[in-house]
Amino acid sequence: MKKIYIIAIVMIAAAIVLLTTAAEDMSTYANFKDATKSGDRVKIAGQLSKDKEMYYNPQEDPNYFSFYIRDTKGEERKVVLLSEKPQDFELSEQIVLTGQMKGDEFVATDMLMKCPSKYKDEEVYIKEEGE
């Protein structure tokens, strides 16, 4: 057997081992219930509760932004993001957070927002008076 083949087989074996260990890095999107139960660092996807308070007062703490989201099971919880309030936050439809539960709050260190394609409404592109 050629040496190259041996090396290739070793590599394929390594790849399989790596990819199985990589399963540890993966998780399903959790909901608040799972996150509370496990206490692990998880990703949660949810909808922003637009009627609930969003709190960011940089004078108090520039790294504290809190809001409420509703997870895929419909449970609503307070989320604390340890960062500034991002631009266009109010517009976001779907939010993916990375973090873990601390008490009743979900403390997130990373957030990804999905904004709707902004310009669906007709009024957005009609010229305003006097323009």
Binding site: D25, M26, S27, T28, Y29, R41, V42, K43, T98, D110
Partner: peptide, 8 residues
């Protein structure tokens, strides 16, 4: 099936 995702 719930989709899998890499946490970090």
């Amino acid at each position: 099936f719930e989709g899998r995702v890499i946490t970090d």
